[in-house]
Every structure is written in C-alpha cells, then in structure tokens.
C-alpha cells in the first residue's frame, strides 16, 4: 500500500497570546502594536500512507499536540493545506460521517473521558448518532469493541472513575475504534501510564494496526517506543519538522544535529524507560524563537549564516529529508 491517506502541506498554526478581543481592539487603534503571536506549528509538510505508522518526536512545547489536533480536524489551521485521500479537508470535514475516518487517542486517560457518561455511552454515542449501528444493536456492538481492547463487556455500565489508568486508555482507544476509523492519531497515548502498562497499550495498538490496517500517527517523547512502533519518523523542533525519514534510517544515520543529539541522549542498553536526556542549552521560548535556523543557539555545527537563513527541508537521499544548512548532499 503506497497510496497517501493524509497529506499536510505548509501547515501552520499561530496563537495570539495574552489578548482579548477588547485589548486587540485597543491595541489596534491606540498603539498600533501587532498582537503577540506564538507560532506553535510553522510550515509543516508531511504525508501518511495507507496502513503506515508515522512517528512524531520532539521536546515538550514543540507543537506536536497542535499539529495532531490540526490533523484530526479539531483545530483550524492558520495557513497551509490538509488533504484526506486527495480531498481538501474543508469539504472532507463538512461531511460528518466521512470525517469519522480520522480519530484521535488522547494523552490524559482521565480527562479525555467524560466523567458523567457511562462507558457504554462514551463508546457507542457517536456510532449511533452517525448511523453506524442502530440503537437496539448498540449493546452487542459496544461489547464487541470492548473485547477488542481487552475489557469485559460489563464495563459498559460503569463510569470512567471506576477504572485504572490503563483501562481508561483502553476505553479511549475503544471510543476511537467504535466509529471505524482509517486513520488514528495517538497523541502521547502512553505517556501518562506506568511503564508496564505502557507496554500493554502499545501491544494493543500494534495488534489493532495489524488486524485492521489502520494508518497511524504516533506522537511520543519516547524514542524507544517510536523505534518499536513506527515505519517513519518526523523530528520536530520549535514548530518545524527538522528531519523526516524511515525509522531504520533515522536511527542508523541521523543527519540533523538536533536528531543526533536526541539519539546520543538516548541510553543504548536499557530495559527501562528510554526518554531523551535534556539537551545542552535552554529551550528557547516559542514566543520569540531564534532567527534563521531555530536550533542555532544550541547547535554544535552552527555557522554564522545559520542565524540569518531559514533552512528549508531538503532531500539528502530518497525519502530522507532534513532542514539543516550545513549538511553536504551526499
């Protein structure tokens, strides 16, 4: 399967921070000061093939969740283009039932479940409303989905607070699966769980992927998990993709200095958590990112033009792109 299921081109998202409509208005007329803008995602282009798993890694605050929400269609983009199976997102999202094809699993297993709804309603509500199942069949349908994620059928009548973290995340996955998605975005879906539980959830996701051929975008801090699960990986830094390639390729021969530092920070032999080590230097504020290459204040390879020129993504070899000015094309 090599067809593209999802494609993003020059996708950006800015937030105006610390402002209110009234203040914007006053600023506009009185001081003529441009509102403070935070570019959480800055010209990101990527694509996802049918059945593929794409990993996204990056430090906290680099815009992974913002990107994920734009891909899921629950956050409008400031600029750029999104396509689902070659259809622009605007028309795709307008058809509610088709838009169900893109689903998301969230980070916080508790706050991502409505505490006032029973698990049966959490999982079955959308399927019934969009006509995927008829109301009389909903119990069987939900029981079936619950068994897919390894929960007993009697979970249906209970409330989220009566479950453990891992079970809650299974409910969150069941909710997404219940509307028969073709594409699943997991935004740090295991980050809030204990290590042993993490492994179970990751295995569950892999089983689901194998059974149903879902395309998946898997966002994580954890390079070990990414390496285990993903076909390709995108590395993000301060809102931009700095490197994107096959997983093997990335771990074998990382090109971008930031990727290399991430991998160096990763313990080589460890059965325990494999989080990346803090990298030298402070993470710059996303409100006033460094000019040129965002990474230049921390980059060991930086040269003087790195602070002036914004590096565009370029292809080093087939399917391996990076955004660094100082890597010779090989």
């Amino acid at each position: 399967m090599n067809e593209t299921i999802f494609e993003a081109r020059d996708l950006s998202r800015s937030f105006s921070v610390g402002s209110s409509p009234l203040r914007d208005f006053a600023d506009h007329f009185l001081r003529d000061r441009p509102p403070k803008v935070l570019r959480a995602v800055d010209n990101v282009s990527l694509s996802l093939r049918e059945g593929e798993t794409l990993g996204i890694v990056g430090e906290s605050g680099c815009g992974k969740s913002t990107l994920a929400r734009m891909i899921a269609g629950i956050l409008p983009a400031s600029s750029g283009e999104r396509r689902f199976r070659d259809e622009p997102y605007e028309s795709f999202l307008a058809r509610n039932r088709d838009a169900l094809k893109v689903q998301m699993v969230f980070q916080d297993p508790l706050s991502s479940l409505n505490p006032r709804l029973r698990v049966g309603d959490i999982i079955g509500e959308a399927a019934v409303l969009h006509g995927l199942v008829r109301r009389p069949q909903i119990k069987d349908y939900v029981a079936d989905i619950l068994s897919q994620v390894g929960l007993p059928a009697d979970s249906m009548g209970r409330y989220p607070h009566q479950f453990s973290g891992g079970q809650r995340q299974r409910i969150g996955i069941a909710r997404a699966l219940a509307v028969k998605p073709d594409m699943l975005i997991c935004d740090e879906a295991v980050a809030a769980l204990d290590v042993s539980v993490q492994a179970q959830i990751i295995n569950l996701l892999m089983d689901i992927k194998q059974d149903s051929g879902l395309a998946m975008i898997f966002i994580s801090h954890d390079l070990g998990v990414i390496r285990h699960l993903c076909d390709r990986v995108a590395v993000m830094y301060l809102g931009r993709v700095v490197e994107l390639t096959e997983t093997e390729q990335l771990f074998a021969s990382p090109l971008h200095p930031y990727t290399r530092m991430l991998l160096e920070g990763m313990p080589k032999i460890s059965l325990q958590r494999r989080r990346f080590m803090p990298i030298q230097g402070e993470i710059p504020s996303p409100l006033s990112p460094p000019s040129g290459c965002h990474f230049h204040p921390r980059c060991p390879m930086a040269t003087e033009h790195c602070g002036r020129i914004r590096p565009e993504l370029r292809e080093a070899s087939s399917g391996h792109v990076h955004a660094c000015l100082n890597i010779e094309p090989c």
Binding site: L93, F106, N114, A126, L129, H130
Partner: peptide
C-alpha cells in the same frame, strides 16, 4: 479545555450536543 470535549469534536458531534 478538557480532552473529552476534543474527543467529542473528533467524533463529529454537533456543537449543541
């Protein structure tokens, strides 16, 4: 601001609902 609302939007439920 909670994720269950984002999940509901992802499930394409109507704003009123």
């Amino acid at each position: 601001g909670k994720e269950y609302v984002e999940a509901a939007r992802c499930l394409r439920l109507s704003p009123a609902r």
